[in-house]
Design a protein around this nucleic acid. Structure first.
Lengths: 212, 212
DNA sequence: GTACATTTCAAACGTATGTTTAAATTCACT
DNA sequence: AGTGAATTTAAACATACGTTTGAAATGTAC
């Protein structure tokens, strides 16, 4: 059996856990290789640089998620009349939950990584995402516009970014929020519980009447 | 004339600009002192440490904003019947805009700093805020609960954090979003425009009917 | 103008980071 | 078993960071 895949995988899994917990720039290669129980230099050997490791960690999930989402978007776009906004948003639930196939806890980990990606690194990660998956994203924006014909596109632009903020922030503080909820309300909330709480909140916000 | 105030102020203003633009940990003391045109060691001389400088930068705004908010909350709490949720949320607008008294661009800068504070540093800033202004915050939560009597407290907890995410993320990416809006929609959006766009979105999300 | 405290300054310190190097080891294949 | 490529390893490198130091400069008061 080759050690190559094994080492690469050990690095990926240690890295994604630390990245999700404390962010990309706050995590050092020494922490990663120590947790993975591999040599420090192996990150640069297998991935080239820390930046490329970050991309590899994200790509492992995006390569599964985005084609899946693209297919769902195509299905909704084929409908005769505009879809309900809730329907459009709910389309994320299944593909996200299926990320547990990449790794147990995969859904939660990926969403935390997404949050870190938007708040941590400055520009290059947004570019990476738009460059690879901009087409798929455009389909989603179109679906939202179709289900909210009364809203001008610029208003939808702002509200989708508001919503992105909600998601990204919630997922980046996912663990902390779950702990507080458990302590204050005796409430065991799992990741799919958070996702399903988000849907009505986001749908109402996006579809709200424009300001006077 | 004493140079003391002058140097301290130059540091504060350079620091807040860099902190807002690129985050707390991503900003080095050498960048700050270089922009402020003061000696590197003067930060430690005047503020003690980088952590204390961060707190001083935030405190300059919080000391103005929070008593002002507290007074508004008290006013609303004195009302005979529950306030409209939009009324409760709108209470932030004026005090936030008045931060331009601290510095021109003060509103925008402070909101960016707030965003950085929640996504950048891990625990110690949240503790600092809760310890100093937890009482005021509790009044706000109470006001929201009064205006949404149908929602269980745990649901309000989640939705207020969703909303915090929207605000924090929007403000942290404030500049980028304004640029995109300008490019894609020929739209000049100022900070008060963003705030006023936020209100209906947040109000609708918070007051949305609970999931089935 | 002398004495004292405050502030500025250049330089260095200690530590941590991402990356590179070159030798040692392991692996795949004949 | 032996050869050449792939991988692992320990050590060092270059750089950046926050902080400290001690002397120089500046300000303040008598």
């Amino acid at each position: 059996m080759s050690n190559k895949q094994s080492t690469q995988l050990k690095i990926l899994e240690a890295a994604e856990q630390l990245f999700a917990d404390t962010g990309f720039s706050a995590t050092s290669l020494r922490q990663i290789t120590s947790l993975a129980e591999v040599n420090l230099a192996s990150v640069n050997y297998h991935f080239g640089s820390k930046k490329e490791l970050i991309q590899a960690v994200l790509q492992r999930y995006l390569a599964v998620l985005m084609p899946r989402l693209d297919q769902e978007f195509n299905r909704l776009l084929a409908a005769q009349q505009p879809n309900q906004l809730t329907t459009v948003l709910s389309v994320f639930v299944e593909p996200l939950l299926e990320l547990s196939a990449v790794q147990p806890q995969g859904t939660s980990t990926f969403l935390q990584l997404l949050g870190r990606g938007y708040t941590d690194v400055q520009g290059h990660l947004r570019w990476f995402f738009n460059h690879h998956y901009g087409r798929t994203l455009d389909k989603f924006v179109l679906l939202v516009q179709q289900s909210c014909p009364a809203l001008p596109p610029s208003e939808i632009f702002w509200r989708l970014h508001f919503s992105l903020g909600t998601i990204v922030f919630t997922m980046a503080s996912n663990v902390a929020l779950k702990d507080i909820a458990a302590a204050d309300f005796n409430e065991r909330v799992e990741i799919d519980g958070v996702i399903k709480r988000l849907i009505p909140y986001l749908a109402a916000g996006i579809a709200a009447p424009s300001a006077a």
